[in-house]
């Protein structure tokens, strides 16, 4: 199986869907002539031309609104946000218009738009560029939220997202763009709403998603090697719809839960998970659910300290030991 980067995997998904469906359009800042701010869309302009790969001005509310309007007429725009952090200037378009138009029209309209781009900290760009809004987005019924952790998932989930008839928000990670992994060539589709056991275990379930999956796997390896503790790492992959059956299955196996998320703790994805687990699997739990989140402050700039603000293998390891204590 070919080994490619997360960045290439996303590009392959885009190219294959552009090839498959003439209504797919890639649009965003620097996606065409510049080849992508993070080179995700590199080469697509040369291959598909300016009608399919469209550079926009720095005008997120405007161009995302245009994408939503076009999607109501059957175009399937894949909009790149250079950073998901910029969603704040297009909030009304994304979460009033895209999220609500189906409902407010009594189901007459649907909005098959994908908005994708990186949403992460860890790159020393300060608080304005380090937002992780998956909880904010998923709070809006009508939308779907995807956070892939591996190249194979990124490709398979993006293909599903582009074919989906609801608005899908696809949150990537600049720290993962260079990560490599095996990715099936050609048609490889991962359905939205299906979690994946990235590592099987029996003593502890670590529920996580996005880059925190990698940190959790690193910590799980140390736990196994040094503590003889068998941790299961469950990658949610999609936040909404949520594969809660896989969560329940894992909890029933290990009876101990640690949630790891690159999220501020207040009203996070983890908060929702913890509520649901105690509500639906209370008797399976041998102890309180623990959570490791981003340290609750705006993203600090200072490079070595930012590492400690975010989940990292050392913090995950410590949280796992606390969960089992």
């Amino acid at each position: 199986m070919p080994v490619i980067s997360y960045r290439e995997a996303i590009r392959h998904a885009l190219a294959e869907e552009l090839e498959r469906d003439s209504n797919v359009v890639v649009m965003g800042e620097e996606v065409a002539q510049f080849n992508g701010a993070y080179k995700v869309t590199e080469g697509l302009l040369a291959r598909f031309g300016p009608q399919r790969i469209v550079d926009t001005p720095i005008s997120e509310a405007g161009f995302i609104g245009v994408g939503i309007g076009a999607s109501m007429l059957g175009i399937r725009p894949v909009m790149e946000l250079m950073f998901w952090s910029f969603y704040s200037v297009a909030f009304d378009q994304i979460l009033n218009n895209a999220a609500n138009v189906r409902y407010m029209s009594g189901g007459q309209i649907h909005c098959p738009i994908v908005i994708r781009g990186p949403a992460n900290g860890g790159t020393n760009v300060g608080a304005t560029h380090s937002h992780t809004p998956e909880n904010v987005l998923a709070n809006h019924p009508g939308v779907k939220v995807v956070v892939p952790s591996t190249p194979a998932d990124a490709k398979g989930l993006l293909k599903s997202a582009i074919r989906d008839n609801d608005p899908v928000f696809f949150l990537e990670n600049t720290m993962l763009y260079g990560e490599k992994g095996e990715v099936p060539a050609g048609e490889h589709v991962v359905p939205l709403g299906l979690a994946d056991v990235k590592r099987a275990g029996t003593d502890l379930t670590i529920i996580t998603y996005g880059r925190s999956v990698l940190h959790s796997l690193a910590a799980a390896a140390v736990l196994e090697r040094e503590q003889k503790i068998s941790a299961e790492v469950l990658d949610l992959r999609t936040i909404r719809p949520l594969d809660f059956d896989s969560v329940l299955k894992s909890v029933a196996k290990t009876h101990r839960v640690l949630i790891v998320e690159e999220q501020k703790p207040f009203a996070s994805v983890g908060s929702q998970l913890a509520y649901m687990i105690q509500r639906e699997a209370f008797d399976e739990l041998d102890g309180p659910i623990h959570r490791l989140a981003t340290v609750d402050a705006p993203a600090i700039y200072s490079p070595p300290v930012e590492v400690e603000q975010l989940p990292n293998p050392r913090r995950v390891l410590q949280a796992a030991l606390e969960t089992l204590a």
């Binding site: 509310a61 405007g62 161009f63 995302i64 609104g65 245009v66 994408g67 939503i68 309007g69 076009a70 999607s71 109501m72 007429l73 059957g74 175009i75 009304d92 378009q93 009033n96 218009n97 138009v101 407010m104 029209s105 009594g106 007459q108 309209i109």
Partner: peptide
């Protein structure tokens, strides 16, 4: 709303529908 009559709303936030209008033209 009535998409069968090319009528796309009916929007509550002042000015928020205007990019959608440009998007209909884009389509």
């Amino acid at each position: 709303f009535d998409p069968s009559r090319n009528f796309w709303g009916g929007h509550g936030i002042v000015g928020g529908q205007i990019p959608l209008g440009a998007g209909l033209a884009y389509g």
